[in-house]
């Protein structure tokens, strides 16, 4: 009988502890300014140009530079390794607390449509599971995680490797009363200066080239993202940054994928801009991997993108 009570006490103590920990993590993660989804809900950014997508735009497009070129305020909402569902939820939360931007520049490439590239990072949304939109996206994109989340604290335990550090940092930000993130305008300069051998490893893995596979879930969330932006009166542009030319020979169906992306753009009456004719695409000097330019390449690309945006703004202001 004594043992039975001990087990019962342990069980209830654990439940209380899990409940408490869940609240503590929830609080801490919402106070971490470096987490974009937390920051965009606390601060009014109200950018006029929003850059969005995975790591490529995050490391390549400096809003500071864009602001100078275009004369409009911009913000980089992109996140590393994020897929369209991830991007969709970030845009959804951005629009909840901020005025809708005038322009959304959204990064889309054949890689974005393939499940082997990028992913849905469930842990980023763990504190927001109570929101029905988040709940339904997670249910669809990470069912393995979803079946555990009703257990107290499990929403944080499941991906704790990605969360513990952020939670500790969140508490630090709370006690230090920190309001601004480390990267204020969302842009993170490329962390790597040297070529990272990604292409060599890729060729070793796929000596006869790699055929991209179109994923319908990715397409669904790309469409949802475009629709969400359009509902909020945002002018959407899809774009693809320069791809290192020597890598193209190992991607036999790249063109087919690009055509399908163009078809989506046409369906929604939006522009899909490719920066495939830029000179930098011909040399490794400007890249750290096939898709990611280094700091030198990023500066050149941001200039081109800025010029394009400026021209588009000009067109919008003077339609004739």
């Amino acid at each position: 009988m004594k043992n039975f009570y001990k087990i019962l006490i342990s069980f209830f103590l654990l439940l209380v502890l899990f409940y408490g920990l869940e609240k503590l993590y929830d609080f801490a993660l919402r106070h971490n300014c470096n987490i974009k989804i937390a920051y965009i809900q606390k601060e009014k950014i109200n950018a006029e140009i929003l850059i969005h997508g995975p790591c490529e735009p995050l490391w390549m497009i400096s809003p500071e530079k864009l602001d100078r070129i275009t004369g409009l305020k911009s913000y980089n909402l992109a996140l590393t390794h994020s897929d369209f569902a991830d991007n969709y939820l970030h845009l959804y939360y951005y629009l909840k607390n901020n005025n809708a931007p005038k322009y959304l520049f959204f990064y889309v490439t054949p890689e974005s449509m393939d499940l082997n590239y990028n992913t849905f990072n469930t842990y980023r949304f763990a504190p927001y599971l109570d929101n029905p939109t988040v709940d339904s996206v997670i249910k669809e994109c990470d069912s393995n995680f979803y079946k555990w989340v009703r257990i107290p604290f499990m929403r944080y335990a499941f991906y704790n490797k990605n969360i513990n550090f952020d939670a500790i940092q969140g508490m630090k930000h709370y006690f230090n009363n920190r309001k601004k993130p480390y990267y204020v305008n969302g842009y993170e300069p490329p962390f790597q200066v040297k070529w990272d051998n990604h292409l060599e490893n890729f060729i070793q893995l796929y000596p006869h080239g790699y055929r991209f596979e179109w994923n319908n879930l990715r397409e669904k969330y790309l469409c949802k993202l475009i629709e969400l932006a359009k509902q909020n009166g945002i002018k959407v542009y899809l774009f693809e940054s320069p791809v290192l030319k020597e890598a193209l020979q190992y991607q036999p169906n790249r063109e087919v994928m690009v055509n399908r992306i163009k078809a989506i753009a046409t369906k929604y009456g939006i522009v899909f801009k490719q920066f495939d004719n830029m000179k930098i695409a011909e040399s490794r000097e400007y890249f750290m991997s096939t898709l990611n330019t280094n700091l030198k390449g990023s500066r050149i690309f941001t200039d081109s993108l800025g010029a394009f945006i400026k021209a588009e703004i000009g067109k919008a202001n003077h339609p004739e």
Partner: peptide
């Protein structure tokens, strides 16, 4: 003997630091 401290401690460590995926 049942050891509450051990059970609670290890379950907590598993939840906070365990690899679930």
């Amino acid at each position: 003997r049942i050891n509450i401290k051990y059970i609670i401690g290890s379950v907590l460590l598993i939840m906070i630091f365990g690899v679930f995926n």
